[in-house]
Design a protein around this nucleic acid. Structure first.
Length: 717
DNA sequence: TAAGCTCTCATTCCG
DNA sequence: TGAGAGCTTA
């Protein structure tokens, strides 16, 4: 019965990959070739066939969300609870390893994990202490992370090139930053990986025990691993364990944050007797889409040869659309979505608008808002990076780690307690001088304070902390108490209604997450909640079924949609101008474009504008080199040039807020019109008014369509 | 200390 | 163009 299901759901190659356990295995899995399915079934196969217990499996995925999903899928297949299986991101697994190691040494288990924003704050204070305030924090933070990703420590820096920061200064800052993190009993994200490697290097006993525990290592998205992740895998593999990695060198798009393409290109060199299985059959896209994608990616020099094919038919041709500017581009895309949605009875969630940079979402959002279409922009602001969320969570962080200066500063200012920069610095300095933690140092300050207001404020604060601590075994109660007692209405008093509302909603969402956590876990303490939360960067996307999604191509990795619009496909935007200096053949940009194209199942639109507004000023654009690589004479594409029909354009561009009112009333029943796509027709009826007005038009072929008047782009016959 | 104003800067992003 | 950081002023 077991094998039946596996045989039914997998093709021969996939099956081979699932069953192969004789030596290290590299699965080169093209886009849409079912790689997640292979990993899921492999875990299922190992457990069901008693080749492994769940606790002997170590599986790493790219995001927490992916880990949760995979775990749930296997749980459903096996119909058991897999709470003993080690599955998660590299970072979450490293936190577990560090805690296990600390436990084995009887050390304090609590530490803080600083995100990019926290790290920036630490760096600011380091620069201040060193009198180097003229150095840009962002630049130095990037540099430090660059070296950490390559496992180079301050004292080891040899090859260093920089015009703006001197080598010795940089070393000093990097070093101080590390010391400061240590003082705060905190790790940044990069440190979690490095600390794990350090443990494995220094404590051979621990390493042997740990790697003996593991029998099977599985790694997803291997093409985006960095050097320290590679070393962690080497340690875990330990020359004997079973290792399977899945990836697609053509989809490696994160070199800017340390991903090493050579990890996947050289896998065989690092793991002896590697077996390679290629998955080239695509189960997602039509052949027109795949052909276009193949034509582009073959221009990359650094890749393993691989050609996607599918049993699907050719399908619709890929549309390449030339627009006048970004507003026409947005209008066209939204029009198309409305038309196709109606014609093919689809949901908005079947479509996606992709772009290279977040700033490109703006014109789309404008038009979507005007048309009252539900949409969601993914990625721009992360849930756990919102100020109100960080401020609240800082209370929990501080209760766990009372040396955490970052959280301390936050909660002393949320709500405002009249404790300014100077006061806080004194308290922090005193903590070092007297060997106290920050809480006790604050108490000391309080004892000596004679300011009535401050005494009152601090009394309230100490009470609050005590009350949360009393509830620390149940994070939902603790968080609920905290939120009830912060008087958020007063705190957000001066904000406008929308902002206030959205902040309160986010806080409610946070409370919901704590509630769910309490329901789903045995250990409900704030400690274990914070362990989970500090490695989550975003809430799970709730899939509203009729919401249109907009996102960057990076965010679309791993997803698929019926109809995909890849927008802004112009030189200097896609490929992005900043990449052209160091990547002559723009291979990573091409991979990114390839990722964009291969998201599409049935319909693919690629749009560009001749003119685009950037930072307030318009400039002229040229088609992306990637379009030339597809070839304008390709049999797989249709070219649509919207810049030719000038009359139509002029009306389209004028339809901004100022004269939108006129435009709506422009057509009347029985007017004869021409539609740019459907051709000649007669207006048979009107529904609604304003932005929502819909025209009912009968076209020459007898077909009757409902079309939004404001964006219909109609001309009089 | 905190609100209000000016200045600057802008690729992509997961943990 | 517009968000956010940092400076100025009450």
């Amino acid at each position: 019965m077991l094998m039946e299901k596996i045989y039914k759901d997998l093709n021969d190659r996939q099956l081979e990959a699932v069953k192969y356990i004789d030596s290290p295995l590299l699965i080169l899995a093209g886009a849409g070739s079912g790689k997640t399915r292979v990993l899921t079934y492999k875990i299922y196969y190992l457990i069901k066939n008693k080749l492994s217990y769940p606790e002997n499996i170590f599986a790493v995925t790219f995001t927490n969300k992916a880990a949760d999903e995979m775990k749930k899928r296997v749980e459903t297949l096996l119909n058991i609870n897999l709470k003993n299986m080690m599955i998660g991101t590299f970072h979450s697994m490293c936190v577990k390893i560090i805690k296990m190691h600390r436990a084995s040494k009887k050390l304090d288990l609590n530490f803080s994990i600083y995100d990019t924003d926290d790290g920036k704050n630490i760096l600011k204070s380091v620069l201040k202490e060193l009198g180097k305030e003229n150095i840009d924090v962002k630049t130095i933070q990037k540099k430090i992370s660059y070296f950490k990703n390559r496992m180079i420590f301050p004292e080891e820096i040899e090859n260093y090139h920089s015009f703006d920061i001197e080598k010795e200064d940089f070393k000093k800052i990097y070093n101080h930053y590390q010391m400061k993190l240590k003082d705060n009993n905190a790790y940044d994200f990069d440190d979690l990986l490095l600390e794990t490697i350090k443990i494995f290097n220094d404590d051979n006993n621990f390493k042997e025990n740990f790697s003996n525990r593991i029998k099977f290592i599985l790694v997803d998205e291997y093409q985006d691993t960095n050097l320290s992740q590679f070393y962690i895998l080497k340690h875990l593999y330990n020359g004997k364990n079973n290792i399977t990695v899945v990836g697609d060198d053509d989809q490696s798009i994160y070199s800017f944050r340390g991903a090493e393409l050579k990890n996947i290109l050289d896998f065989e060199k690092h793991f002896e007797n590697t077996k390679i299985i290629k998955l080239e059959q695509n189960y997602r896209s039509t052949n027109n889409i795949l052909n276009v994608a193949n034509r582009v990616i073959r221009n990359n020099l650094q890749r393993k040869d691989k050609i996607l094919w599918s049993l699907f038919n050719d399908g619709e041709k890929v549309k390449i659309v030339k627009c006048f500017d970004e507003r026409q581009e947005a209008t066209y895309v939204v029009q198309r979505i409305l038309q196709n949605r109606e014609r093919e009875e689809k949901n908005f969630s079947d479509f996606v608008i992709l772009y290279r940079t977040n700033a490109q979402s703006r014109p789309f959002e404008e038009i979507l808002r005007k048309n009252n279409i539900n949409y969601k922009v993914i990625g721009n602001i992360k849930f756990f990076e919102r100020k109100e969320i960080k401020d609240i969570l800082a209370y929990l962080s501080f209760i766990i780690n009372k040396n955490d200066e970052i959280s301390f500063r936050r909660i002393m200012n949320f709500p405002k307690k009249g404790m300014g920069e100077i006061t806080l610095n004194t308290i922090i300095e005193n903590s070092t001088t007297f060997g106290l933690n920050l809480y006790d140092s604050l108490k000391k300050f309080y004892d000596s304070s004679r300011n009535r207001n401050k005494i009152m404020e601090l009394n309230k604060f100490f009470d609050l902390i005590k009350n949360i601590e009393n509830r620390k075994e149940n994070v939902y109660n603790a968080l609920g108490f905290l939120i009830d007692n912060l008087n958020l209405d007063t705190v957000f008093e001066k904000m406008d209604t929308n902002e206030k509302l959205s902040r309160l909603e986010n806080i409610q969402e946070l409370l919901n997450s704590a509630k769910e956590f309490v329901l789903r876990n045995e250990d409900n303490s704030i400690d274990s909640y914070m362990d989970m939360i500090s490695l989550y960067t975003d809430m799970d996307e709730y899939n509203d079924n009729d919401t249109l999604t907009l996102m960057t191509v990076h965010n679309a990795k791993g997803l698929e949609f019926d109809t995909v619009f890849v927008t802004g496909v112009e030189e200097k935007l896609f490929p992005h101008m900043n990449t052209l200096d160091y990547d002559q053949n723009c291979e990573e940009e091409r991979r990114l474009f390839y990722v964009a194209l291969t998201r599409a199942k049935k319909n693919l639109y690629i749009t560009m504008a001749k003119q685009r507004k950037f930072y307030g000023t318009s400039d002229f654009r040229r088609p992306s080199r990637f379009l030339k690589e597809i070839g304008f004479d390709s049999p797989n594409i249709d070219l649509i040039d919207l810049t030719i029909s000038k009359q139509i354009d002029s009306e389209l561009f004028d339809n901004d807020d100022s004269n939108g009112g006129e435009f709506k009333e422009f057509f009347d029943i029985n007017d004869r019109i021409v539609h740019p796509i459907f051709g000649e027709g007669v207006i048979k009826g009107k529904k609604g008014s304003g932005k929502d007005q819909i025209l009912i038009i009968q076209f020459l072929n007898g077909e009757i369509k409902k079309i939004f008047s404001e964006y219909a782009n109609l001309t009089r016959k």
